[in-house]
Amino acid sequence: MAIGTAIVAVMAPAVAAASAAEDLQAGVAAWKAGDHARAVALWRPLATAGVADAQFNLGQAYRLGRGVPADPRAARDWYLKAAQQNHAQAQANYGLLLYEDGDRAGAMPWLQKAADRGDPRAQYVVGTVLFNGDPPPRDWVRAYALMTRAAAASLPQAVASLAEMDRYIPLDQRQQGIALAREMGRGATAAKPLPAAAPPTASPRTAATPASSPASGKAKGRGWRVQLGAFGDADRAERLWRQISAADASLADKQHYVVKAGSVTRLQAGPFGSSAAAEQACAAIRRQDHPCFAVREP
């Protein structure tokens, strides 16, 4: 899973000096201008003084090797310092680094904290672990809720995993999961969204291992589709399309797509001009007790 390249520009409340706030902002400006060495030079004294945002930013610099030599251990150390100050993005990044290093026991408490605060990458990993029950216990209701939250944040792999979960989790548990996802949405203290690359596509039956490549950002210029299910064969997808399209007027002028992804066949329909339009169509489809999620066109 990519860790992300976001740089935080918000001043920590514990440091009130105007000059420190200016240095933090100046570092952000230098980073955006490509002067990474200057950004690091501005942030380092603040990070040493305990400013969580500057600590997180140094972690990003060491992770990506910008302004300093790439050093995963230093990145992890700076993420940890910020995470211990309850910095949401640092908690997610630190947990993901531990996870990809194979320290799942150490990673999960941090990923759980980040998932509770609304980080979709952490929600994806924790949801996958709970679905698999590895480590136990298995909790399909909470797994479905977390994956629903991650999918709602347009994390493509979460959308795909949620559709696959529909094949295994009974309807009553999925409904409980959706209700729990709503409660999570009301209670979460969400971190600022990161322009981070999503975790690799993986079946919920397989543990999700974060990759280490830099973030690529969201693709632009594509339309939207709705995803209606995932099946073991194309015939089932075609039958569902005939059933749903006949019952839902919003799909009358839409094309359907049978998308092969390994052993899974996904049924999608579109195109829609925006995510809002796709979600509006999904809302009507879900009222017929069919799962539906908005996805980007490939």
Score class of each variant (00 low, 15 high):
7 I>R: 14
8 V>D: 09
18 A>T: 13
18 A>Q: 14
19 S>E: 15
26 A>F: 03
28 V>G: 08
28 V>T: 12
30 A>F: 11
35 D>T: 07
42 L>M: 11
44 R>W: 04
45 P>G: 06
46 L>P: 05
46 L>S: 11
51 V>Y: 00
52 A>F: 05
65 G>V: 09
68 V>Q: 10
70 A>W: 05
72 P>N: 06
75 A>W: 03
79 Y>K: 11
80 L>I: 11
87 H>Y: 01
93 N>H: 08
94 Y>W: 06
101 D>C: 04
103 D>A: 13
104 R>H: 11
105 A>C: 08
105 A>M: 04
105 A>E: 13
106 G>K: 07
112 Q>I: 12
113 K>I: 10
115 A>V: 06
116 D>P: 01
118 G>C: 07
131 F>R: 02
136 P>F: 04
136 P>K: 13
137 P>F: 10
139 D>E: 09
144 Y>E: 06
147 M>C: 10
149 R>L: 14
153 A>C: 08
153 A>S: 13
154 S>E: 09
155 L>Q: 11
160 A>D: 15
172 D>W: 08
172 D>H: 09
176 Q>P: 00
177 G>Q: 03
177 G>V: 09
181 A>I: 08
186 R>Y: 05
188 A>Y: 02
202 A>C: 11
205 R>L: 10
205 R>P: 01
207 A>W: 00
215 A>F: 05
216 S>W: 08
216 S>N: 12
218 K>R: 09
221 G>D: 14
226 V>P: 00
227 Q>C: 04
228 L>P: 02
228 L>Y: 01
234 A>K: 15
235 D>Y: 04
235 D>K: 15
237 A>Q: 01
238 E>G: 12
241 W>P: 01
243 Q>G: 06
243 Q>M: 12
243 Q>N: 12
244 I>P: 00
244 I>K: 00
246 A>I: 03
248 D>R: 06
249 A>W: 00
250 S>L: 10
252 A>R: 13
253 D>R: 15
255 Q>N: 14
259 V>N: 09
262 G>F: 07
265 T>Y: 08
265 T>N: 07
270 G>S: 08
271 P>Y: 04
277 A>D: 15
279 E>P: 10
285 I>E: 01
290 H>L: 03
